[in-house]
Design a protein around this nucleic acid. Structure first.
Length: 795
DNA sequence: AGCTTGCTGAATACACACCTATTGC
DNA sequence: CTGCACGAATAAAGCAATAGGTGTGTATTCAGCAAGCT
């Protein structure tokens, strides 16, 4: 089969006003295109279609047009000529494609929206909302272009990766290690209305936006992964981006049922969303810091293997009524712990177990092939396949328990979890009964924690090697007590292990006794996205010092230094940005929350840049009157930066840092609270910049002495009478300060120029995801202030 | 007049239920 | 074959758990004031 032809594109339009640029006013001014063949990194075509003249770009076909109509029609012809199989871009489904179509409509270009592979078939657009517990609410548009797959990288990344920000800039930085500049929409108009040279600048920017999605597609192996997934589950690729998990399971069910001449009922509005079933057992966490190795035993694909072992399926379920009618002998049925009856495979083999068997067997083959494969291309294919199979297997159980889904069957899902609960309890019991001193082992084993399909065991032995051997022995022994194919596996050892509570722990992860693989953290601030970076870094660094370096005093000192920096206002604003997802529209919230209120406020300020449902809202907490609620104190970081609003360090200490740090240090450091949060380092408070709101509005600004800050009056504008003699020294200090800030600003500026790919042009970027941006802006402000001070010497 | 006492409303503290976000498996 | 009006259905894996914030009701503390006493 010929490789796919992939088109990546991006558009720029002038003057975005309002939420969506106004199609009646704002013309499309540029379209950048990049065509590649799948698996090749050499572009087939690179071009830019622009309105008005544009200076040439090396290696790029620049096409200038006089009217917007010509631009749009040129693009349509280009699509037809290139005939791409796959159209990609960033946010093309919600922005670029619908915008082009609406714009064509406004300009009455009826012949524009014929882009598909069916003759004379028009492209159709429909509003679509997708909502699921897993992905939240997402608004998008469904665009039908027959014969071409649209693959929006934004949608794919949002589904597959949990990130704090999904801007193209931040996603590229994360996966490709390279940033792009973020240009504010007002500047786009200026560049377009400038000269051929500034339009060239815009074209380069636009091209980069087409270039990055292509790189992401490649790097994340999306084609392989999604094509494999589509093949395995039997759904179109578009479903994988626009629909949920359940359609995949349903599709497999239908395929299998057809082979067996079975039909699947079309159930409507049966199970209500309120009826639910009991889930898995989470064993009580014996919280603490363990300095002996903890072995972890895991069931391999627990729920799928339960469904296979006990033949759980729609077609093997025996309802009480069936039981009376059929009068089955007890030896031909299984009774589940939740008191449901299913026939054994000898009577009737279930469809679900068959689907699962195939998925798991195929995954095993894929994994084995993966091990053999050396060629990176082949490895990518096989890894994509095994991942797809794993995910498919895991969502079969969820499908049966989805009461608002197409085919709920709580008898199956509650049986699965009831077996699971029984099994984890059984495992815990066996481990603690078998591995005892009375049975000849060195120590009594103790299960310190376990969740759903795993148990964490402290065998009491001091070395990783010994723990591994006992872990393997236990796994083999216990596996033997279960029905096939249920299997308990020894997977890893944690040493040392910090158990904070259920679903929250950290430890060093060992799979071979010589060296640990990594530091593993679960559920704590290091992996959560609703904390500011400062907390994340602080916790990560502390754990690193405690677990890897075994340096508790060092960790403690590090925490103290950070707290001191925070209270002295020496922390970079980008580290204090908290982000939270906006999960529903403003008025659907029952209580006021910081990010929701801020989103509303931002909408009033400028609807174009305000966050929408499904977006993540970044904010910082600013200083305010005592007793003000957090939702009154949240503010957009860029707004804070632009208006010099003081943040509230005390809030960050009390509400962000203190509890997570104490949770970590409490089991390790006696008197952690006193030591870390109440020491002398917490007393050095720097005065924050007075804000121009509230009471400070009435305060009159007076000059103060540059030497001692005393208020001065009269003719002397620089120094008070006391400091008069130190004139030379203080002047040098001011000059030194200015030059230091200038060089800092210069360095940051250069860094941004490098990022934008040119050292000869102005930096336009205002990316709220980039730490350098915040530092550059701050340096600029500080520098301006220092210069003002310097000016006062020249009276 | 100056002090104490008792009352009252406001401010504060605290426990509790509930909502929201997020993660683990 | 296309465009338009109208109506109906659409689709959504699961539960367990922690933590932070808001709102509410109740208890406690405190400042301010008037009355009473010396």
């Amino acid at each position: 089969m010929a490789p796919f032809r992939i088109l990546s594109f991006d558009i720029e339009c002038a003057g975005r006003k309002g939420l969506f640029p106004e199609p009646t006013h704002d013309p499309v001014i540029q379209i950048a295109n990049l065509v590649t063949l799948q698996g090749s990194d050499r572009p087939l075509v690179q071009n830019v279609m622009t309105l008005k003249s544009c200076s040439p770009i090396v290696g790029v076909d620049v096409m200038s047009f006089d009217t917007e109509r010509d631009v749009l029609l040129a693009w349509r012809d280009f699509i037809r000529e290139i005939d791409p199989d796959i159209i990609i871009g960033y946010n093309i489904c919600k922005f670029d494609l619908p915008y082009l179509l609406e714009r064509a409509e406004v300009l009455k270009i009826a012949e524009f929206p014929i882009l598909g592979r069916i003759r004379n078939s028009r492209v159709r657009v429909r509003d679509a909302t997708f909502s699921s517990r897993q992905y939240g609410v997402r608004e998008s548009k469904e665009i039908t272009i027959e014969g071409r797959v649209q693959f929006d990288l934004l949608q794919a990344v949002q589904r597959d990766h949990k990130l704090s920000s999904y801007s193209l800039n931040s996603v590229s930085a994360h996966f490709l290690g390279e940033q792009k500049e973020d240009v504010h929409h007002s500047i786009i108009s200026d560049l377009q209305n400038g000269t051929a040279e500034t339009r060239r600048r815009l074209a380069v920017y636009c091209l980069k936006d087409a270039y990055l999605p292509q790189r992401l597609l490649d790097k994340l192996m999306y084609i392989y992964n999604y094509v494999e997934m589509a093949r395995v589950t039997g759904v179109p690729i578009s479903f994988l981006l626009s629909r949920g998990q359940s359609i995949k399971v349903l599709s497999q069910l239908l395929r299998k049922a057809k082979q067996k001449y079975l039909v699947i009922p079309n159930i409507k509005g049966q199970g209500s969303a309120s009826d639910t079933f009991e889930g898995a057992t989470v064993l009580e966490a014996k919280a603490g810091y363990y300095e002996k190795p903890i072995a972890t035993l895991d069931f391999a694909s627990l729920y799928p293997s339960i469904m296979m072992a006990y033949n759980l399926c729609y077609c093997t379920l025996v309802t009480p009524e069936d039981a009376r009618r059929l009068n089955l002998p007890p030896e031909s049925v299984n009774k589940t712990p939740s008191n449901e009856t299913f026939v054994k495979p000898e009577v009737q083999k279930g469809i679900l177990p068959e689907i699962l068997e195939e998925l798991i067997a195929a995954r095993k083959r894929a994994k084995a092939d993966l091990k053999e494969a050396k060629d990176p291309f082949e490895r990518a294919v096989l890894d994509g396949r095994q991942l797809a199979l794993k995910i498919s297997a895991n969502s079969v159980y969820g499908f049966t328990g989805a009461t608002v889904g197409q085919l709920p069957c709580l008898e199956i899902s509650s049986s699965v979890t009831s077996y699971g609960r029984q099994m984890i309890e059984h495992t815990k019991k066996i481990v603690e009964e078998k591995f005892t001193t009375t049975a000849g082992y060195e120590h009594n084993a103790e299960v310190v924690y376990g969740d759903t399909d795993s148990v964490m065991v402290q065998f009491g032995v001091p070395t990783v090697d010994a723990a591994m051997n006992l872990g393997r022995e236990a796994a083999d022994f216990i596996s033997g007590t279960f029905t096939k194919p249920i299997k308990l596996e020894f997977e890893k050892v944690y040493f040392p292990y910090l158990l904070i509570s259920k679903k929250r722990y950290a430890g060093l992860y060992w799979t071979n006794p010589e060296k640990f693989d990594k530091m593993d953290t679960k559920g704590i601030e290091t992996v959560r996205r609703d904390n500011c970076l400062l907390v994340k870094n602080l916790v990560t660094e502390s754990l690193h010092k405690i677990l890897i370096d075994r340096d508790v005093p060092g960790a403690s000192q590090y925490v103290k230094n950070t707290i001191s920096d925070l209270l002295m206002n020496r922390i970079d604003l980008s580290l204090l940005v908290i982000t939270k997802g906006l999960t529903k529209t403003g008025d659907n919230y029952a209580v006021k929350a910081a990010h929701v209120e801020l989103a509303e406020r931002m909408r009033k300020r400028d609807a174009a840049t305000a966050p929408n449902v499904g977006d993540r809202v970044p904010y910082v907490i600013i200083n305010a009157a005592k007793g003000a609620k957090a939702y009154e104190r949240s503010e957009d970081p860029i707004y804070v930066l632009e208006n010099n609003i003081p943040i509230d360090p005390q809030y960050y200490l009390d509400n962000q840092i203190s509890k997570p740090i104490l949770r970590i240090f409490d089991p390790i450091l006696p008197n952690a609270r006193k030591e870390l949060l109440q020491g002398s380092h917490t007393r050095a408070l720097s005065k924050s910049t007075p804000s121009n709101s509230g009471i400070m509005k009435f305060a009159k600004k007076q000059l103060s002495c540059l030497g001692c800050k005393a208020v001065i009056s009269g003719s002397n504008q620089t120094l008070c009478s006391h400091c008069k003699g130190r004139e030379a020294e203080l002047y040098c200090k001011t000059v030194g300060n200015v030059s230091e800030l200038e060089s800092l600003f210069g360095r940051l500026w250069t860094q941004c120029q490098e990022c934008q790919g040119s050292l000869h042009q102005d930096v336009l970027c205002t990316s709220r995801d980039c730490p350098i941006f915040y530092r550059r802006r701050k340096a600029q402000k500080d520098m301006a202030e220092a210069k003002l001070q310097l000016d006062r010497w020249n009276f």
